[in-house]
């Protein structure tokens, strides 16, 4: 049984079913996947249980998903979130 993967900013990330997106990224050494709206600082997992909202990430085009809660699924397209994650909206 080959290991499932999802893509993260173009690279393939292996995971084990039952793991969250954040856990899978942590397992391969990715520590951050978001830049803050103010200072553009990197953030990743902090509370690990859906409380702190530091781990926000874009999953299949949907921003502000909590990486620590969202279960990884094969073929998911995951990407780094910049700021609000809604940069596509016309200003």
């Amino acid at each position: 049984m080959s290991q499932p993967h999802f893509s993260f900013d173009g690279s393939q990330i292996p995971f084990r079913p039952g793991q969250s997106v954040g856990a899978a990224l942590t397992a391969v050494g990715v520590r951050s996947w978001r830049s803050t709206r103010g200072a553009g600082r990197p953030r990743g997992l902090f509370c690990g249980i859906g409380v702190c909202f530091d781990c926000l990430i874009v999953v299949d085009g949907r921003p502000n998903e909590r990486a620590c809660l969202r279960l990884a699924e094969p073929g998911m397209e995951v990407s780094t979130q910049e700021g609000t994650g809604h940069g596509d909206l016309e200003v």
Binding site: R37, N64, G83, T84, H86, G87, L89, E90, V91
Partner: peptide
């Protein structure tokens, strides 16, 4: 009542 959304660009 007022609803407050998540932060957005100036949309």
């Amino acid at each position: 009542f007022i609803l407050v959304t998540e932060p957005l660009p100036r949309v």
